Amino acid sequence: MAERQGAPGFGETGREYKRQAAMSKSLEQTALKNAKADKDQKTMVTSYGLKGSENSQPDEEFKGLIAACEADDRRAMIKVAKAFHTGDGLPPSRDKNWGKALYWLEKAVRTRYEVDESSSPLDDPCCKLVAMQASLYYTGGPGLAKDVKKSGELFKLAAELATKDNRGDLASEYSKQSKEAWQTLNKAVKKRK
């Protein structure tokens, strides 16, 4: 029997999403297990009076997430992006950096679902990730300059992606935010004149 290509058929969707969730959980557990093994090794070195620190563990876990990102794990990219955006989940040695958040969001959008099959389109659709990028540009923040024009363009793209995904409510919301960004930009231009 020939192997099927493409999306799962009717009735297979539930099994497919469960399979994807299990794969993602397995990847996350492996990354955490590797980070814990590294921490145990550093703790052992510390107990013998050599180098290492009790506080290195959160940084090691975060480094494990970064390694997963570099291995095209879309879910890890989104976690890291959100951590750099909000500061939640960042180790003490790192600061919020919206430029880095933007980098990982862009990479997650480019990765989509072709490379990382463990991510379900229901988890973090590209339209939401692009809208998140637009929001970052709209206000600017640590490590990222405000760019209302780019924000308007990205909200428009988010609306188009939401329309393609049959997410009318999101498409309408992003379209409205795009118009607001363009209005803000036009007001700023008029003030300069």
Score class of each variant (00 low, 15 high):
residue 173 E to V: 04
residue 29 Q to P: 06
residue 113 Y to H: 10
residue 58 P to M: 11
residue 118 S to G: 00
residue 95 D to V: 12
residue 15 R to P: 06
residue 84 F to G: 08
residue 43 T to K: 15
residue 63 K to F: 05
residue 107 K to L: 03
residue 87 G to Q: 06
residue 133 Q to Y: 00
residue 8 P to N: 04
residue 100 K to W: 01
residue 143 G to E: 05
residue 171 A to G: 03
residue 108 A to I: 03
residue 190 K to P: 07
residue 139 T to L: 06
residue 25 K to N: 15
residue 168 G to K: 06
residue 76 A to G: 06
residue 131 A to D: 00
residue 119 S to E: 15
residue 134 A to D: 06
residue 179 K to T: 15
residue 125 P to Q: 00
residue 124 D to H: 11
residue 37 A to H: 03
residue 30 T to P: 01
residue 37 A to P: 05
residue 144 L to R: 01
residue 16 E to H: 12
residue 13 T to P: 05
residue 64 G to T: 09
residue 112 R to N: 14
residue 106 E to N: 04
residue 165 D to W: 02
residue 192 R to W: 07
residue 128 K to V: 00
residue 153 E to D: 08
residue 191 K to N: 13
residue 133 Q to C: 00
residue 23 M to K: 11
residue 44 M to R: 13
residue 52 G to W: 07
residue 93 S to Q: 12
residue 77 M to L: 09
residue 59 D to M: 05
residue 188 A to I: 05
residue 27 L to C: 08
residue 140 G to F: 00
residue 75 R to K: 15
residue 181 A to N: 01
residue 42 K to H: 12
residue 148 V to D: 01
residue 144 L to E: 04
residue 29 Q to C: 09
residue 68 A to L: 07
residue 29 Q to R: 10
residue 157 L to R: 03
residue 119 S to M: 12
residue 76 A to C: 06
residue 167 R to L: 08
residue 191 K to Y: 09
residue 57 Q to C: 13
residue 186 N to V: 10
residue 12 E to Q: 11
residue 139 T to I: 07
residue 80 V to G: 08
residue 26 S to W: 07
residue 105 L to A: 11
residue 150 K to T: 00
residue 151 S to I: 04
residue 54 E to P: 15
residue 18 K to G: 08
residue 56 S to L: 15
residue 59 D to H: 10
residue 174 Y to Q: 03
residue 92 P to S: 12
residue 78 I to H: 06
residue 147 D to R: 00
residue 163 T to Y: 04
residue 6 G to R: 05
residue 109 V to L: 02
residue 114 E to H: 09
residue 183 Q to R: 10
residue 81 A to Y: 00
residue 96 K to F: 07
residue 71 A to T: 14
residue 53 S to W: 09
residue 149 K to S: 13
residue 86 T to P: 02
residue 42 K to P: 03
residue 170 L to C: 10
residue 122 L to V: 09
residue 20 Q to K: 09
residue 33 K to Q: 13
residue 32 L to C: 15
residue 158 A to Y: 01
residue 187 K to M: 10
residue 39 K to G: 13
residue 178 S to F: 01
residue 188 A to Q: 08
residue 146 K to G: 04
residue 181 A to T: 03
residue 9 G to S: 04
residue 45 V to I: 15
residue 193 K to L: 09
residue 154 L to M: 03
residue 106 E to M: 04
residue 60 E to Q: 13
residue 124 D to W: 07
residue 84 F to L: 07
residue 118 S to P: 00
